[in-house]
Design a protein around this nucleic acid. Structure first.
Lengths: 124, 124
DNA sequence: CCGGATCCGTGCGGATACTG
DNA sequence: CAGTATCCGCACGGATCCGG
């Protein structure tokens, strides 16, 4: 019961691990990082179109958060029409393998998970 | 732009990776798996007290989901008072290292992330 | 002790319209 | 092209009460 302290609130503030994990837990962060990791540098609409079913708003918001956290860089070109490029920072890249590991795990086990879910709901 | 297909909706259904990742992205799943991974088998109130700031409802609900996905097992003892033990399945254990990797990453980089956030908000 | 059931607030995230 | 601004629904999640 000692190791748990790492995952608990520490002195009025929230737990560090949970703060970070909660951020990644929002709907799009992981996905954007994964995509940027694969494709390297991308423009706004490339991401927008590439991901497909993300709204402009959420893409903007999420990118801002990731930028604030120092996970992606935002490069603006003073042109008409505007051009903005996003790419992963070094910190972002350091996170990438973990997310890819997770994605890989998901791919590997999703079939079993689906089967489990069906069995479970059938049991109810 | 080909690799992206893995992360996109595939034929009317949702993307597999995203389905699974979204599940883990809810507020407590990762944490519960991490805790169960560290402590091994735990009773309901052990988890409840161990995590601290999770409500009974969310603990119950999340455990059910994890059970449905075949990530945790639920063992009920026919006693008075009742006793229920939770532990990770093999599938749950296979996920564990990835989450621990993530947690470790979070611990390592959180300080830098906090600094980045402050700089960012200060810039605004 | 372990939950199920219910009520309810908050905020995430979508849709739309508008700007530089 | 790359956002910003606004409105709003909905479901996530908390609090509370009840049941086996």
């Amino acid at each position: 019961m000692d190791i748990l302290k790492k995952y608990r609130a520490s002195g009025g503030g929230a737990c560090a691990v949970r703060n970070v994990l909660d951020r990644l837990g929002d709907k799009w962060s992981m996905l954007i990082i994964l995509v940027l990791g694969k494709e390297g540098t991308m423009r706004f609409n490339q991401l927008h179109h590439g991901i497909g079913d993300i709204s402009q708003k959420m893409l903007t918001v999420t990118l801002k958060i990731l930028e604030a956290d120092g996970l992606v860089t935002r490069k603006v070109y003073a042109e008409i029409p505007p051009k903005v490029e996003y790419s992963l920072t070094e910190r972002g890249h350091s996170l990438l393998p973990h997310l890819e590991g997770l994605a890989e795990w998901a791919e590997t086990h999703m079939q079993g998970i689906y089967t489990s879910r069906e069995k479970y709901t059938a049991g109810v």
